[in-house]
């Protein structure tokens, strides 16, 4: 209820707006999570509540955590080359759990040829190496809204 901002006090005790909650995870076997941590940090600075689940996640673990945490989006970092399996599998599990409204996006070392196929299957956006962080933050701000 405390407010650090100089806004009118009258506005603050009203119902707080929902916060966007996003799960950032690293499925599969590769052990490099620097990229995922940078994304988590950038989203934190953009006002997002980031649930960071760490390394070596299976699709089942990611979807189970996403359900318990009731997130609006899932961001995956995949450097292992297994993206053509991991993304579709997670989408399938989300649909099975009736969580089709959760936005799935990701990035990593993903060949250009694979991206349209992943998008066609329902991955909302795929970022490739060299993408400025701000572009990812802007995407999240624009695309992912807290659920009703």
């Amino acid at each position: 209820m405390a407010t650090a901002k100089g806004k009118s006090v009258a506005a603050t005790p009203k119902k707080a707006a929902r916060k966007v909650r996003i799960l950032v995870g690293k499925p599969g076997l590769d052990g490099h999570d620097r990229g995922a941590k940078i994304i988590a940090r950038a989203l934190r600075d953009a006002g997002v509540e980031v649930i960071y689940t760490g390394l070596h996640q299976t699709p089942e673990m990611i979807v189970s955590a996403a359900a318990q945490e009731d997130v609006d989006g899932i961001g995956l970092s995949i450097l292992s080359g297994a993206h053509n399996y991991l993304f579709p599998r997670i989408l399938q599990l989300l649909r099975e759990k009736k969580m089709g409204d959760v936005v799935l996006f990701g990035g990593g070392i993903i060949p250009d040829d694979d991206i349209p196929k992943l998008v066609k299957k329902g991955v909302d956006r795929v970022f490739t190496p060299g993408t400025p962080i701000q572009e990812i933050v802007d995407y999240v701000n624009e695309r992912i809204r807290p659920r009703k």
């Binding site: 916060k19 934190r44 980031v50 689940t53 760490g54 189970s64």
Partner: peptide, 25 residues
């Protein structure tokens, strides 16, 4: 920013698929 990094699950991943455990960050 009002944002947060909720990282406590990292150490609890062995329970991620256990239906008898519910974790809320």
């Amino acid at each position: 920013s009002g944002g947060a990094i909720l990282g406590d699950r990292i150490r609890m991943q062995q329970h991620a698929l256990d239906e008898g455990v519910f974790i809320k960050s």
